[in-house]
Amino acid sequence: MYPFEITSPLTIAAAVEALENEEAQPLAGGQTLIPTLKARLAMPEVLVSLTGIKELQSIAVRDGQLCVGAGVTHANLAKQTAQYPALAALAADIGDPAVRNRGTIGGSLANNDPAACYPAAALASGATIVTNARTIAADDYFVGMFETALDEGEIITEVRFPLPQAAHYAKFAQPASRFALVGVFVARFADGVRVAVTGASEEGVFRWTDAEGALSQAFSAQALDGLTVPAEDMMDDIHGTPDYRAHLVAVLTKRAVVAAG
């Protein structure tokens, strides 16, 4: 790694101030950023560690939404099975136990890896991404692969998940990395169904609106018969061809619907 300085603010305000330095970068759990630094793919002069900020650690239900502090680890969110079981199950299946003890929801959403799990949950739930400056609807937040609506120096403070009537995340884990080769999060609300797909597209997480329309009419696997996503938009790498990923999207969406019940 290139040498850098770490600063450890105790409040969101102090972190935002430290991030005004344009050579500074936020450090959450570090489970992606530290390997990135080791590979010399990033060269910040200052890392602003967010782990000491207590304001980012809370989990609470407010106004019918599960409000998760950006610094909550996957392991801690996995324990909140009563409030949002599908989200807890997703968190419990990220990476491995040691990664889950450090990695955070805010870090995952800020990084927006095209194969990460949380983006699917946030988009399918119609979550709100709260930052130090504003609130951003999930539909406006995910811009593309590793790209988000966050501005320079802006940090996520909280993620607010509306609680669905039923939901499930079906993931086909890439066997080595445990990232989603394809993952589909289906969430059924009183006013309709939302379906978000991760791992599959060159553009990162996306909503499968055809499936949403069909499932909002009839919430069953049969409602999806004949529906496919176009393979030309899918990622192509050593782990799977575009056709294979497109096929998995349909299969996993059906599985998620069946499991959501």
Binding site: I6, L27, G30, I34, A75, P97, A98, V99, N101, R102
Partner: peptide, 15 residues
Amino acid sequence: GLAVKSCTMFAREAQ
């Protein structure tokens, strides 16, 4: 008390 990979955590973070 939590399992972590010590190659992916800065020593300073264990203060």
